[in-house]
Amino acid sequence: MSDPTDPDRDDAALAAEFALHLLEPGERAAFEERLAVEPHLQALVRQWDADLAGLAAEVPPVAPPRRLKKAIDKRLHGPGIGPDGTPLWMRWRVGIGAALLALLVGLAVLFGDVLAPVPDGPVYRAELAAEDRALVVLASLDAATGVLAVDHVQGAPPPGRVLELWLIAEGAAAPVSLGVFADEGATRLTVPASLRPQFEGGTLAVSDEPPGGSPTGTPTGSVLATGAVTRL
């Protein structure tokens, strides 16, 4: 539109329109599809986000009301749970709640999945294991919601490092980060809609990275475990 002979400048303008949320829904969806597979577009959007964020400097900070933080903690961790953990007596209530929930889920299974949400997309699963099984991680993605459940079954990152999960799409040149996950137990990550289809036929990998994850956007540490993605 601006200069049809120069696709690079066109992409730069398109990336800015995307970052500013100026694209119409159809154009936005088309751009997101390209964004998922074109690293130069990802770099353009990142650069625009960084440059445009400078505009927020003229916005004065305003302290939010105190009750907001309480409301956020309640949404994240349930009622009555402080920001730093669960008082012991509370675990009773959580335990009873969990038992009731298990009962409800059981009833739902018995009586035709009425209460259970029905995913309308495929579910992908992968077991990532080191050769000697020193590190074992299970991952499963509900493509309908984008929720990626990561269960760290065995092993730990080297001291001072964190574990980062990567998707290597079929035929892709470079892995894409799916996020950093916890040293033990379960972590829930969210996979953007544009990335979900790439789980089909893909491979997942875990690398050790500095705290906060890879500084470069590609793995910098050693790859500790990998596993092929299967569709359930």
């Binding site: 990142r46 986000d49 980062e164 799916l178 996950f181 500095p210």
Partner: peptide, 15 residues
């Protein structure tokens, strides 16, 4: 939920 998706080096944390 998404803090794990922040990767240092691609964005500044405030950005």
């Amino acid at each position: 939920q998404k803090a794990g998706r922040y990767s240092a080096g691609t964005y500044s944390p405030m950005t």
